[in-house]
C-alpha cells in the first residue's frame, strides 16, 4: 500500500465538498473512466467580484485522486478566479503533506479541473496540452512522454543529458535502463544509434579536467561572472518552485543559498554540482560550491 500522509487519508476518508452541485456557475470535467480517474469540479462564482463562493467535486479514482479533489475545493473557496488559477499542482500536493511520485498526476488532474472550470465560466475552451506516459523515474516522477519529447526537442544523446534536462535518472539511478531504451528508440527515428560509451567518456572527461586558474581576471569581473551563472540557473529552479542566491565568495569556495523546493530536495546535490560545473566552465578555474543558510558569513568560518 502507498505511504499516504495523514492529511491524504483524512481527505480520503472524510472528503470535503463531495457532492453534485445542481446550480453550478462553472463545471470542469477532466479524465475519463477508461483512464481510471475522472474529476468533475463545480463552482459557485460571484458575478461581481469573481470570488469562488462554493466549490464541490465528484471523483472516480483512487485515494489520492479523491484527496486531491477534496483539498482543492477547500483551497480555492474564497479566492477570486484569478487567484485560484495561481494554485499549482505542487500547491495541492503540499497542502496534502506530499503525494507519492506515482500519484503526482492526481494533483495535476486537480489543477486541470480548475483550469477547465474557469475556462467554462469564462466561455473559453480549455486545451489539455498534457499527455501522460508510463512513469520512468520514480524519484522525480518523470514519465516516458516527457523524456521522449525532451530528447527530441533538444537532441539529447546520453542518460546524463536526460538527467540534466528532466531530472529523470538523477536519483537512485534504477531507471537508467528505461532511459537508455527511450534514447535508443528516439535516436533510431533519425537513424542514429545510442552509444552508452559516449555518456561514460563525457563523465570521465569532466572529472579529469585539470583545474585552470582564472588568470588575469579582476575580483570584480570574477564575482560578476559567478553572479551571471547564478542568474542563468535561477529560472530553471524557479520553475520547480525553488530558488538560489549568491551568499559569498571566499577564494575558490562559492557559498550559495538554496530555498523553496530545492532545499531538502533529493536533487539538491545534483543541482549544486550542476551549478559548480557551469561556474568552472565559465571561470576557467576550479571552484567549490557550498550550500549555506542565507545569513551565513563565509569569512568567519574559513579563516584560521
Amino acid at each position: 500500500m502507498w505511504d499516504y500522509s495523514d492529511t491524504v487519508k483524512e481527505h480520503f476518508f472524510n472528503p470535503k465538498n463531495a457532492r453534485a452541485m445542481d446550480d453550478a456557475d462553472a463545471i470542469g470535467d477532466v479524465g475519463s473512466i477508461q483512464c481510471g480517474d475522472a474529476l468533475r469540479l463545480t463552482l459557485k462564482v460571484n458575478a461581481e467580484s469573481e470570488v469562488i463562493e462554493d466549490a464541490a467535486f465528484q471523483t472516480f479514482g483512487c485515494g489520492s485522486a479523491i484527496a486531491s479533489s477534496s483539498v482543492l475545493t477547500e483551497m480555492i473557496k474564497g479566492k477570486t478566479l484569478d487567484e485560484a488559477l495561481k494554485v499549482t499542482n505542487q500547491d495541492i500536493a503540499s497542502e496534502l503533506d506530499g503525494l507519492p511520485p506515482e500519484k503526482m498526476h492526481c494533483s495535476v488532474m486537480g489543477r486541470e479541473a480548475l483550469q477547465a472550470a474557469v475556462a467554462n465560466y469564462r466561455g473559453e475552451v480549455w486545451k489539455d496540452d498534457h499527455e501522460e506516459g508510463a512513469l520512468i523515474c520514480k524519484c522525480f516522477a518523470v514519465d516516458a512522454v516527457m523524456i521522449e519529447d525532451t530528447v527530441r526537442a533538444n537532441n539529447l544523446r546520453t542518460v546524463e543529458d536526460v538527467t540534466n534536462y528532466t531530472k529523470a535518472g538523477g536519483g537512485c539511478s534504477a531507471c537508467h535502463e528505461g532511459i537508455e531504451e527511450i534514447l535508443t528508440r528516439v535516436l533510431a527515428e533519425t537513424g542514429e544509434a545510442f552509444n552508452a560509451r559516449a555518456s561514460r567518456q563525457k563523465l570521465h572527461a569532466s572529472k579529469e579536467k585539470p583545474p585552470v586558474p582564472g588568470k588575469g581576471m579582476s575580483n570584480l569581473e570574477r564575482i560578476k561572472r559567478i553572479e551571471r551563472v547564478i542568474e542563468m540557473v535561477r529560472p530553471q529552479l524557479q520553475r520547480d518552485r525553488g530558488d538560489v542566491t549568491l551568499v559569498d565568495v571566499d577564494g575558490d569556495t562559492v557559498f550559495i543559498n538554496l530555498v523553496g523546493a530545492c532545499s531538502g530536495c533529493q536533487m539538491a546535490s545534483l543541482t549544486i554540482s550542476g551549478i559548480q560545473q557551469q561556474m568552472m566552465e565559465d571561470l576557467g578555474e576550479f571552484v567549490r560550491v557550498v550550500p549555506v543558510p542565507a545569513n551565513h558569513a563565509a569569512t568567519t568560518g574559513v579563516t584560521a
Partner: peptide
C-alpha cells in the same frame, strides 16, 4: 462498476 479499486481497498483496510 463505476468505482476504483485502490479506493475500495483503502476502505476495506479501514
Amino acid at each position: 462498476e463505476y468505482i476504483e479499486g485502490e479506493a475500495i481497498l483503502m476502505l476495506l483496510n479501514k
